[in-house]
Design a protein around this nucleic acid. Structure first.
Lengths: 242, 242
DNA sequence: GCAATAGTGTCTGTCAGACAATATAGG
DNA sequence: CCTATATTGTCTGACAGACACTATTGC
C-alpha cells in the first residue's frame, strides 16, 4: 500500500513507518502502597508474562483518544485523570517489529481501582516494587499476590517513569486528589503523600500546608464508623486559588 | 509492503501506520530573552512559514537517535543537552497525512546558538513571545527580526510546551547550566533564571541559594574586560551533592 | 578619586518540624 | 470514664527577601 521513495526526505511516504501504540499505567494507592493494573499476555512475545494494558493507535484517532479508548475497553473505565507520560522508542523494545509506544499515566482512587478489577476480569492488581534509590528513578518491578513478577517488554521502565512523574508532581500540583474519592479526610490525603514519596510527614505541618494552599473545601460532613473522634471530610475546592 | 488485516487486534501489521517524526526546540537565552532556532519551509504545506527543525524517524533508529541525527544534520551540532519533551498526535496536525511527532528540547548556550546560526545558514533566530498568563501555558509565538511570525503546523503548541517545561525544571534541577558556557558568573546565571521565569530575583538570596545547593564550583578565575570589579567565574560542580 | 558592579552582613517575616495540649466519637 | 485518633496551639530553627554596607577594577 505504501510506496517507499527514499529519494525525497520531505515526503512522509518516503519512509517505512513504525507501528505506534499506547500503553496505560493505571495507578492507585492501595493499602498505603502504590499499585498498578496489569494483564497477563496470552500470546507471544512474552506470553504468560504481565504487561501494562495497551493497544495500537488507529489511523483515525489521536493519541489521547487512543488512550481513552483503551481505558474504556480494557479497564471499563471513564472519566479518570489521564496524562501523557513519555514516548518509548528504542529499537528492540518489541521483538516482532518496530513499535513506538506513548505511555499514559492514569490515576484512580482505590474505589475506582477495585471497580475496574471487578468489571475487567483480565486485569490484575500488582504492587509496585520501588527501590527508592535517590533520584535515579530506573525501572520499577511489581509483585503479584506477594511474589515478584517480571514485566513484558520495557514496561518496567515505563512503570519507573510513572512513579518518578507521580512523585515529582505531588509537590507542585494537585494530582493527589485524583487518587482519592470525592470526599476524603486529611489523614487519607496524607497517606497518599506518604505512600508516593516514601516518607512520613508531620501531621500538623501537613494539615496547615494543605489548608493554606486553598485547594481544599470542607464538606461539613464527618467520617463515620470509627470508635474514636471522626475526622472532617474535605473535597477538592471548586475554585482553587493558585 | 504492509498487508492490513483488521481481524487480529494483536497483530501490529493489522493497523495502518502513521508517520512518526521528531521536531527539535533548540532554545537559548539571548539578550536576556528566550530564543529558538527555526527554518523557513520551502515546500507545502505551510510553504514560506517558519517551523522547528525536524524530520522523519527512520525504521532503524530510535527516537533519541533521530533527535541527535537531526540536531547534527540541521544544526551542525553535537553534544548539546537534549531531552524528550512531549508527543503530539492530534489528527489534523499535518494536512498531508497522519504524522505523529515527538518533540525534543535542546538547550544551548548563547555561544553554541551563535555557532549554529553560522554553521547552518538555513536556521534563523526567533525570539519567543510569551504572554505569561498565569499557569495556563498555551501556545507561544515568535518574532523574527522584530516582527511577529506565525509558526507552521502546531509548532506554537510545541514551543509553549517547551517554555513550560523549562520554567518548571529550573526550580528543582540544574538545567540552567545547559544554557551557559563552561565558565560563567553568578550574575549570568541569575540572568538565565530571570529571563526564563520572567521575574527579577534578589541578588544576595539568589547567590546564597545557588552556592548552598552545591552545584557550583569556583574556577578561581575572574571575568575580564569590564571597567569595574570583575566577577568570579564558576563552573558546574563535578560531583554535585544533591 | 570616581563610576559601576561584585560580594557580604544583618534584620525580619514566613513557614515547616517538633511536640504538647485539647476535643470528641463509640463503648 | 477510657481509648484512640482528630484538631489546635506554641516554640523554634531554617531560609528567602530587603537593604545597606564594603570590595575591587579600569579610568
Amino acid at each position: 500500500m505504501t510506496e517507499i521513495n527514499p529519494k525525497d526526505p520531505r515526503d512522509p511516504a518516503a519512509y517505512e513507518r513504525p507501528s505506534v501504540a499506547v500503553d496505560l499505567v493505571l495507578m492507585s494507592i492501595v493499602d498505603a502502597a502504590p499499585a498498578v493494573l496489569v494483564m497477563r499476555r496470552a500470546d507471544p512475545p512474552f506470553a504468560g508474562q504481565w504487561a501494562l494494558p495497551g493497544g495500537f493507535v488507529r489511523i483515525d484517532e489521536s493519541l489521547d483518544e487512543a488512550a481513552r479508548r483503551i481505558l474504556r475497553d480494557k479497564a471499563r473505565m471513564d472519566g479518570a485523570y489521564v496524562e501523557q507520560l513519555y514516548t518509548f522508542g528504542a529499537l528492540g523494545r518489541d521483538p516482532r517489529t518496530r513499535v513506538i509506544t506513548t505511555a499514559y499515566l492514569a490515576l484512580l482512587s482505590a474505589d475506582s481501582f477495585a471497580a475496574a478489577l471487578r468489571a475487567a476480569p483480565a486485569l490484575k492488581l500488582a504492587k509496585v516494587l520501588t527501590a527508592w534509590t535517590g533520584e535515579a528513578g530506573g525501572p520499577a518491578g511489581v509483585a503479584i499476590e506477594g511474589a515478584a513478577a517480571p514485566l513484558a517488554f520495557d514496561h518496567a521502565d515505563i512503570l519507573g517513569t510513572a512513579m518518578l512523574r507521580l512523585r515529582g508532581k505531588l509537590d507542585y500540583s494537585n494530582v493527589a486528589f485524583a487518587l482519592l474519592p470525592e470526599a476524603f479526610t486529611l489523614r487519607e490525603l496524607q497517606d497518599i503523600y506518604e505512600a508516593v514519596l516514601g516518607v512520613t510527614l508531620n501531621k500538623p505541618a501537613f494539615r496547615r500546608r494543605m489548608l493554606d494552599k486553598g485547594w481544599l473545601e470542607a464538606t461539613g460532613a464527618r467520617e463515620s464508623g470509627a470508635s474514636f473522634r471522626p475526622a472532617e471530610l474535605f473535597r477538592r475546592a471548586i475554585n482553587p486559588r493558585q
